[in-house]
Simulated assay, not measured.
Amino acid sequence: MASDNFVDYVKIHCTSGNGGGGSAHFRREKYIPQGGPDGGDGGRGGHIILRGNKQLWTLLHLKYQKHMKAGHGEHGSGQLQKGAQGEDKYIEVPLGTLAKDAETGETLFEITEDGEEKILVPGGRGGLGNDHFKSSTYQTPRFAQPGEPGQESWMILEMKILADVGLVGKPNAGKSTLLSVLSSAKPEIADYPFTTLRPNLGIVKYRDYRSFVMADIPGIIEGAHEGKGLGLRFLRHIERNSCLLFMVPADADDIHEEYKLLLNELKQYNPELLHKERLLAITKSDMLDDELKEAISKDLPKIPYVFISSVAQQGLTELKDMIWKHLNHV
Rank of each mutant, 00 (worst) to 15 (best):
V306D: 09
S310H: 09
A190D: 02
F26H: 09
D208E: 13
D131L: 12
K325N: 11
L261A: 10
M247L: 14
L157G: 06
K134Q: 14
G223L: 03
I12Q: 10
E291P: 00
L80A: 11
L108F: 07
I111P: 02
A144R: 06
F246Y: 15
S77Q: 14
A70N: 00
T112M: 12
N264W: 10
K186M: 07
E116V: 05
A295L: 11
V248H: 05
S285C: 05
S285T: 04
N200L: 06
K320C: 06
W57G: 13
Q313M: 12
D299E: 11
P149H: 12
E272D: 14
L197V: 14
K54S: 14
N53M: 02
P33Q: 10
N241R: 12
K205Y: 08
P218S: 04
E152K: 11
A70G: 06
L280C: 03
D251I: 03
L56Y: 06
C14P: 02
A250R: 04
A163Y: 01
E294P: 03
P122G: 04
L98G: 10
L162S: 07
F109T: 01
I49G: 01
G73M: 07
Y305L: 09
S310Q: 04
R198E: 15
K54I: 03
L167E: 01
R198P: 05
I323P: 00
Q81T: 10
N264R: 13
H329G: 14
T196C: 02
W324Y: 10
G129M: 00
A224H: 08
T317Q: 15
K175I: 00
K82M: 11
P271V: 07
G39H: 06
G166H: 07
L245W: 03
K82D: 01
S135W: 00
